[in-house]
Amino acid sequence: MRKFTWFNAVSLTFGFVFLYIPMVILIFYSFNASKLVTVWAGFSTRWYGELINNQAFLDAAWVTLKVGFISSTIATILGTMAAFVLVRSGRFFGRTLFSGMIYAPLVMPEVITGLSLLLLFIAIGLDRGVTTIVLAHATFSMCYVSVVVSSRMATFDESLEDAAYDLGCTGWDAFRSVTLPIIMPAVIAGWLLAFTLSLDDLVIASFTAGPSSTTLPIKIYSSVRLGVSPEINALSTIMIAIVTFGVLSVSIYSKRVIERQKREEQLANS
């Protein structure tokens, strides 16, 4: 057994303090009764109440959810298709280039992605709005989906598909009834990742958003520039709560599923 030393305790504390103090302060002040952000004047949930009545924030939240849902769905479909080609097609001319080009947006500065999409939309005369944000988000989050799905595809036993053909499936039928159900957890994980990325994104959205389509991060950023209000603290606290809840429930669920499968396999083999 490893000993719990003072050194370990101190570094653990420092690490967590470093990571979470800013968030704790933010949550703390969201319950501040005072209008001044840095002066504590007693506990209150007043800013949460005001938030509900702030139509601009609610609109922005609705736009963000809509964009996240549609763009991550598009990204999941395209990313899964790309993962398929990468893993399945074996060697073809330009394969290395193709895979490199799929993964390049992962390391591309967001400013450049945003700018280039903006130029494209102007060039083809597409009015900026929800549609353009959706297209932009689908474009950059697609590569994340394809990374997640292709790592699952790499360990997929291809004889399962052969068996499906052998038992009378056409290509589409084999994919729908065998391949897709098996890789579904990876596809869902990819969707969640794309959704989270879309919720978070400020830079690309600010390049591609139009006047009628302000997302929540843009809204928060622009209001902060006019001064931090306690309302923003309340809003941020809600977002932290949603993200924490989402991440925790996904990880607990997947851990349980995996543990159960392991137990069942051990039982069957004993």
């Binding site: 036993d157 004889s159 399962l160 068996a163 052998d166 038992l167 159900p181 098996i182």
Partner: peptide
Amino acid sequence: IPANKRAVNMMFQSYALFPH
């Protein structure tokens, strides 16, 4: 004549049972 149109079936080395 493709695999899905043949009156031939195969038992795979890895069994290839559909896990779901």
